[in-house]
Design a protein around this nucleic acid. Sequence first.
DNA 1: GCTACCTCTGACGTCAATGTCAGGTTTCTA
DNA 2: TAGAAACCTGACATTGACGTCAGAGGTAGC
Lengths: 141, 141
Amino acid sequence: MRIGELAERTGVSVRALRYYEEQGLLGSERTGSGQRQYGEPAVDRVRLIQQLYGAGMSSASILELLPCVVTGIATPEMLERMREHRASVVRQIAELQDTLLRFDAVMANAVTSHDTGVSCHMANGQDTPGDQIVAVSMTNR
Amino acid sequence: MRIGELAERTGVSVRALRYYEEQGLLGSERTGSGQRQYGEPAVDRVRLIQQLYGAGMSSASILELLPCVVTGIATPEMLERMREHRASVVRQIAELQDTLLRFDAVMANAVTSHDTGVSCHMANGQDTPGDQIVAVSMTNR
DNA sequence: GCTACCTCTGACGTCAATGTCAGGTTTCTA
DNA sequence: TAGAAACCTGACATTGACGTCAGAGGTAGC
């Protein structure tokens, strides 16, 4: 497929795909006239790249690890790097779960204390059941 | 406390703290000479801000939610925003957990091939034809 | 009061991942 | 075989969360 289709199928912009290639993250065949041609695996490849970006990795880190992830072959040094990245992901998950707890605390509290109506401006027409001001309490711990 | 101490206690740079203030995320008293003075709650506030940044929120989003957090008052609209952000966090966690699985798969497999001493250092993304995304056992033995 | 460090306000620099634009070529569709 | 749409290669612009520097004033220990 050509770059436009890959972009559409992955939800990534054409510009981004070219950037990935520039960074060495994504290869492509070229037609005689120079247009990029991708095979099916490119779709998953792009998604993987996006996933690693989402895990907070830089292009350089991804570049380092991607071949290993793709081929499943790594040197001990690569394994060590991967362990570090893995640990980072674990930390991120823990942080996000903590954040989730905070959100839940706020929202749960808001629901149960909706009758302590404190004056505050509110949206017009937005008819949620019990659409009065809601009091929440979320201490900074 | 002054800004330097707050920075040290939160692990956030002085520049970042001033930036938070600029964005309306963090208030401060001022001494007669204009120096910022913070109370104890500022420490937790900064950590909360960091946490929300870590959850991928922009300054604008944080600014939207913080008053609710601080005053304990939310409109139904704000609650809706919170639900959206919560959902985003849930998605991020799921993504990261998936990433974790990929890492684990690669590492588990790579261990078995570590003694083949195969170099994992080539960059151009277009490695072997028929490349797999998730590591599969493709080593000998 | 000296000295060393801390803080202030601008203002410009950075970095990574993209956006955007220009000017030209290729491919598809009617 | 047009004309539209997609693609190409540069190259500069943007965005967010800061870093960094300059020049000036504040603060604290001796």
